[in-house]
């Protein structure tokens, strides 16, 4: 009854399992380490404009998160639906923060 040998396939599913080469993963890792070093330098040495350090740190962190999601987590090779739903989730998170912050900023 239950089929364990092959997985179901529906329209919209990725055609084949995408195998990411070892070297490519290592390249991604090097990039992530560089971004980490950058964010530490920006903060500790004050290389960037001080007032923007929070924003710089968050932009770098977001870039790292996107890279991890896209390549390490294979998001780029999955059904596009997941990317869209991830977008909705992030949108809601931003709304939660923005609306709440709006209350505090205008108080």
């Amino acid at each position: 009854m239950a089929n364990k040998n092959t997985s179901r396939h529906l329209p919209g599913d990725p055609e084949v399992h995408h195998i990411i080469p070892y070297k490519f993963h290592i390249g991604i890792w090097v990039g992530l380490i560089i971004l980490t070093v950058m964010t530490v330098l920006v903060s500790v040495m004050g290389i960037s404009l001080v007032a923007f350090s929070v924003i710089t740190a968050l932009i770098i962190a977001s870039a790292k998160a996107v890279v991890v999601a896209n390549y390490f987590m294979h998001l780029k090779y999955e059904n596009k639906l997941i990317t869209w739903l991830m977008g909705v989730t992030m949108l809601l998170f931003v709304v939660f923060i923005a609306f709440t912050a709006f209350d505090y900023i205008t108080r």
């Binding site: 609306f99 709006f102 209350d103 505090y104 900023i105 205008t106 108080r107």
Partner: peptide, 10 residues
């Protein structure tokens, strides 16, 4: 005690 503008928007 939420801010006025926030109340209007909500």
């Amino acid at each position: 005690g939420m801010s006025g503008p926030a109340r209007v928007i909500f």
